[in-house]
Design a protein around this nucleic acid. Structure first.
Lengths: 191, 191, 191, 191
DNA sequence: GATGAATGAGTTTTCATTCAT
DNA sequence: AATGAATGAAAACTCATTCAT
């Protein structure tokens, strides 16, 4: 009954998040001023501070939204994995999807940087998300990897490869052979 | 090449680099002011500017020094790899060495952040280093992996795992099973 | 005079005054934002402005209410003074009552600060109140002090002592010997 | 050997303190912006922050200087008191000196307000100063008041009267009969 | 009467950089 | 080589006030 009306405020908040994400990616978190974000969102600096009373708070929410999206992507992938028979195809898809999204990747990197240097609370949240993601990957590879322990290690390696490739891709490494990496990874499961 | 005469000036420069690296790791590049660095190095801001006429220049040198160290580590490893017979041991060593050095890891991460957000020239330098490092890894795994193409992909995957694990380790992921990851990776070479 | 119809509006106004007084005491007038006051009063900033169309107006009313209370206290005291025979007891009572109320004391101090720095009109009101209070004290000491002139000076000294002790008490001076001060003051009347 | 050269910095600091004191008195602490102070001192905002890295720090030093001056005044008075024979004259002098200095009085009031609302450390310092001042007054009245206990109470009452009259004077109470107040106070010592 | 989102001018604060000594 | 005081432009942040609903 309550929580039905999407007051203007919610729209404004979303437009702030969108503007902030875009600018963070484009110029980096520290090179993006709150004035920039306000301008991009089409509001006044005062309005920005009405919704986010500090830059940290805004970064927190941007991070949250980013997390949710990564989680959603992995969730979709894990579901798809159970209906597929060819592991290498499954890996290729997630690699392409996550690494291919440069915007998301940059954001991820910046947020990690922020998380590490600034707020212990933010770092803790990141950590929890990583655990979640690892669990989701474990679930995704369940059809192909037997043994809890082996699955755990495999998932962590896969997550590392993901992060590492995201990083290289952001830096501008060209022609990352995603197909072949996926194949090799799939092959390595068969030992 | 480019080896200057040792003088007080060189010592001061090194103390600046040391202080800057320490503070970059502790608080992030953007949250470290030149005043901070000067104080940490025991000099005045004026002196800092005598040696580095801009912050970018200083970051450039810090990055350079960091690059040299990573390169040296990989070089040592590649050499050792050729004298070893057990691949999993070889991988375990480099994983432990590089991931275990939290300070270096953080610096690496921050510098990438810098490179991505600021200077295209700096980014290009990073890119070149990554190519170098990949080549070195390729050389390190030569005894165990046949085929140029396969070696290339393997090296890139290994580099990704390295970066990914560094990232996780910095974030605070505990009990990363380096031994088992090394083993799995070694096993995957045998296909 | 000026007694309006009791309605929700009047209750809201009072809750605003109460909240404002509390926060002024807690954080000082200038460090209290209207948003703070609205939150404390359980209303929205908009509602606050419906009742008080400026911060000055609100301060004005808070001051007014404070004045009324001090006046009432002194009035009660002056009446009691006429039925008592022991001057030192009479003084002790008013000292304890007024100085003991830390909240009121702080408010008094802040409002004086406001009056002095901001509005000459508010300062004039304060001045009139002080004259009133002095007159009331003169009336209170009438039974014990002969001579208009002497009474005037005595009242002013008494008022000064009151303010001075309020100030010390707010600052946190411990163990103010109110009884002895009252005694000394009573004794000084006998010259 | 060291501490001899009055570098420019010291002069600038003093000019900041002077400007700040003047403006605090004129417009109140909270109504004085740091830009105002910088302009009044003839420096840039940046320079102000070179010397005082926060407004609190500046207020702290202004307070310090103010304290020192009040202390010096009381010290002078206490010395003079020992060479005088007419107590009422001695009191009249200190009352006139301290109350007559409107600038100092206003500053005193503002600083108390600040001390009470903001920083517990500042409040503690204020408290210690009050104890010092009371001791100095005790020393000043030593020739006329016998008995430690009585001297203590008398000094506290005198300090209260001082504060109270300063407050009234700042508010604009006219024609404070300082002579008569001094006389009455002197007379009260003879009980 | 009441709301709460929006505003923008103002404040404190930061900091890379310059420069006279 | 080295100093540290000085700078100003830009950042983050505050808040009294307005107004459509």
């Amino acid at each position: 009954m309550a929580r039905r009306i999407h007051s203007q405020g919610q729209e404004t908040r979303q437009s702030i998040l969108t503007a902030a994400s875009r600018l963070f990616v484009e110029k980096g978190v520290d090179n993006t001023s709150l004035k920039d974000i306000a301008r991009e969102a089409g509001i006044s600096p005062g309005t920005l501070f009405y919704h986010y009373s500090s830059k940290s708070e805004l970064i927190f929410d941007v991070t949250d939204q980013h997390f949710d999206r990564v989680t959603q992507q992995l969730l979709d992938w894990a579901r798809a994995a159970h209906t597929q028979t060819e592991p290498s195809q499954i890996f290729a898809v997630v690699l392409k999807t996550i690494i291919g999204d440069e915007v998301r990747g940059k954001l991820h990197l910046y947020l990690i940087g922020e998380a590490v240097s600034r707020d212990p609370a933010v770092r803790e949240r990141f950590l929890q998300k990583y655990r979640e993601w690892q669990t989701m990957i474990e679930s995704g590879i369940e059809p192909f990897v037997a043994g809890d322990e082996k699955r755990r290690v495999t998932a962590q390696v896969f997550l590392s490869i993901l992060d590492g490739l995201v990083l290289q891709s952001i830096l501008g490494v060209k022609d990352i052979p995603l197909e072949q990496i996926a194949e090799r990874f799939a092959a390595s499961l068969e030992d």
